[in-house]
Each structure stands twice: as structure tokens, then as C-alpha cells.
Design a protein around this nucleic acid. Structure first.
Lengths: 142, 142
DNA sequence: CCGTACTGTAATTTTATTTTGTACAGTTTA
DNA sequence: TAAACTGTACAAAATAAAATTACAGTACGG
């Protein structure tokens, strides 16, 4: 699985943390510790779903477009990484006479999908603001 | 994430399916469509947790050691793949002055662990026998 | 007590995936 | 019209997963 979800959450939390709720891909990349091109790709997906607004050109960048107390990281997961938990490797052989060999993959696919929904449902418990709060609390206590 | 969990479930289901509940690594590998060495590695882990018994030497192989109606695939997940859902890539920089950069990874680690527990809890719904039943039903209906 | 058919395990190679880096066209505004 | 951005594509590098190979150890059957 890629780390796009982690990057998306980190970026949204960072925007929520900043006074003006805006930053360039370079500033976000520096905070996340990756390169600007990768941030732009992830932010593009977030923009498509309305989480952020982007502005090109000079003084452009990314701006939070939603209330961080209302957006859950489950929503972020669904838009960025839905399907990422499904292993790509295929078990068995569809043409094998044995039903176990030919059908286990289908049954597992179905189970993986349901299990991923559980995973996403869990993530709906936390909003972007919750994550920021955890980060700030940890900063004080540890 | 590796596909060891898929292979473990497939192997257990296959043993449950076979009349004698026993097979060699080569027979399982053929059914799963991989190589015997990989099967032996996964089966070794299953043996350590008591799911199967192994016998070396001639006429050796793997034998189901539990009631497939009582073992859940959540248990299999816990022994084979616990931690597999945690991305290895690290976000931010622990030495960055900004708390978002230095602490997001820790907070996400914690959330990923909890979310994985939800995932595993979901998998506890299904026993090895349930999976086999789904496979056989699908064979008849599709 | 030797040969055959297995498992256990480690090392290596191959393949696939993920991440990074680079480049450049398009956009905005000062 | 130059400067500072985003959008996007492609190539390179790094990492992870899977397959392959090899061989020591074990157990049975003659």
C-alpha cells in the first residue's frame, strides 16, 4: 500500500494548523518530508473532492476548503486510498478443477472488501481536528 | 503487504476440504499456485500457533490440527499478518521544530494500530469452515 | 542401515511496487 | 513580461515481495 493516505492526512492537518490555512506544495513537502511533485499529486485528488482549493500562479498554493472539525480521516481514506488494502497477488488458478483453487480468490476478494469497510468505518471516528489535537497534546506531554 | 494471510487461509481451507485433512507442501503449493518453499514458511508459522501439525520424512506433510468450524480467519490474520497494514514510510521529521512535522507519524501509528484491530475484529466473524462453504456455494451457483 | 520422500531454512535472483527526481507546459499577478 | 506557483508526465532509484535454488535434517520402508 502507498503512503498517500498518510500524506493526505498530514497535509490537511498541517493546513488546519497554519493560521491562514494555506501553504505551497514546497512548504507542505518540507513539513511532510517528501518532494513537492508528490504533494501536488495528492493535493490534486483532495481538490477534486473539495477538501482543498488550489490556486495556480504567483502566490498560489493550497488552502483548506472544509471545516477540519467536520471532515473525518475516514472520508480522506475513502477518496485517496479505497482499495489499497486488497492484496494484488492472486491465489490459486481459475482453471484448476478444484473449487478451492479456482474460487478462493473470489471469496477472499469479497472478504477483503468488507474488512476494508470496517477499517474505513473506524477511521470515520476521527476528524482532521481530532488528529491535530492529538498531535498538539502529545507535544505537550511527551 | 505480503499475501501470506491469503496463502494461510487458502491452505487451511484446502486442508479442511480434503478428506484426510492432510497434504504435502507441494500439493498445497500447486493448489495455491506458488512454490513449496513459500508454503512451508507460512505453514511453519501456522504450526507454531497450533493450527496444523507437520510431519517430516517420507509420507510427511501438513495436517489440520484444529476444528475448522472453530478457527476464525481473524485468528489466522493475527498470527500471520499482524502489523502488515502499517505503512513503512515515515511522514515528517522528528527533529523539525513544528509539532505537526515531528508528531504526525506517532499519532498516525497509533491510529493505524487501532484501525487494524477493527480490521482483525471483522475477520473474526468468519471461520475457516465459513470460507470453505462460501467457496463451495459459489462453485454451484456461478 | 541405506535410499526415498518429505520438511526447515537460508541465500540469491527476479519481479513488482513505491518513492524520488527532473522537466516543462500552463496559470496568475505584480 | 518575468516571477512564482500548480499540473502532469516520465525516468530513475530505492525498496519490498515473490520465486528459485540449494541443502541439511528427519522419518519411514525395504
Amino acid at each position: 500500500m502507498t503512503s498517500d493516505f498518510t500524506i493526505a492526512v498530514h497535509s490537511l492537518v498541517y493546513l488546519a494548523y497554519l493560521p491562514g490555512n494555506r501553504a505551497s506544495s514546497e512548504a507542505i513537502a518540507h513539513n511532510v518530508a517528501t518532494n513537492p511533485a508528490r504533494i501536488r499529486k495528492v493535493m490534486g485528488a483532495l481538490r477534486n473532492e473539495g477538501f482543498v482549493k488550489t490556486r495556480e500562479g504567483i502566490h498560489g498554493g493550497y488552502m483548506l476548503a472544509v471545516n477540519p472539525e467536520l471532515v473525518t480521516i475516514g472520508q480522506v481514506y475513502e477518496t485517496i486510498s479505497r482499495g489499497a488494502l486488497q492484496p494484488k497477488w492472486q491465489t490459486g488458478d481459475p482453471d484448476h478443477g478444484c473449487p478451492v483453487s479456482s474460487n478462493t480468490q473470489n471469496v477472499m476478494d469479497c472478504i477483503f472488501q468488507e474488512a476494508e469497510s470496517s477499517y474505513a468505518a473506524f477511521l470515520h471516528q476521527y476528524t482532521v481536528a481530532d488528529v491535530l489535537e492529538k498531535i498538539e497534546n502529545r507535544h505537550q506531554t511527551v
